[in-house]
Design a protein around this nucleic acid. Sequence first.
DNA 1: TTAAGTATGTAGTATATACTACACACTATA
DNA 2: TATAGTGTGTAGTATATACTACATACTTAA
Lengths: 118, 118
Amino acid sequence: MPSFGEYLRQCRERHLSEGDKNYSLRKTAQRLGIEPSYLSKIERGDFQPPSEEVIVNMAHDLGEDPDVLLAMAGKLSTDLREIILKRPKLFAQLLRELKEQPDHAILRITREVQDGEW
Amino acid sequence: MPSFGEYLRQCRERHLSEGDKNYSLRKTAQRLGIEPSYLSKIERGDFQPPSEEVIVNMAHDLGEDPDVLLAMAGKLSTDLREIILKRPKLFAQLLRELKEQPDHAILRITREVQDGEW
DNA sequence: TTAAGTATGTAGTATATACTACACACTATA
DNA sequence: TATAGTGTGTAGTATATACTACATACTTAA
């Protein structure tokens, strides 16, 4: 699995190789509101991943999933954290149960809740 | 709802008022491996809540639920964060669905997973 | 061939986090 | 009436987080 920085560079260069010249390091950095040298160091792994806000902007700019990009940076989005912290006992118990469950089981629960079977 | 510091002091003073003299601020701080003045300031809300490690120690020392105490400090335990970060897409979706669900629905899911109905 | 655009290197900064060390004043006990 | 124990106030520190500013070297298009 690539590191956060490597993955970021891959995404950006994919856009470039598809012919969109707006995905140079400088132009991308400008859209993100950060210094090009900062983005360079993040992509190269010289610096830690940036703040949640910048990562979410990156995800939107690159067409990636914010939660996945945040996870690659070792971060959990604030809204998810708050969902858990409002009912910590309940969610702690559920999550520790689901830890060992396969993907399809979690997906199935999600679907059933969506379908209002609760 | 009391703040983290207020709640901490309530817990500690409960032990004291039940006659256990080991729950003075100084002795408690010593068991926790922190300075008494630091604990004093935390309880009074002069300082931010301490690190996850110290909060978990506090919970054990006071007979409280670590996840609840961490939540009062605005923190999520590392193990729960990691459960989510390993499958961010899956858990993000589930959590955002469960956000609006009542307690009993979440409890019911937890029980059914426990009982191996999946 | 020069001007614009590319990435990168060096050297900082501001703010937050997570504490320690020690002195002080008050209170209960022996 | 010492002294042991109580909580608190002042003043720091070390480390991490999240960046900026500017200079430099290389590349490409006019």
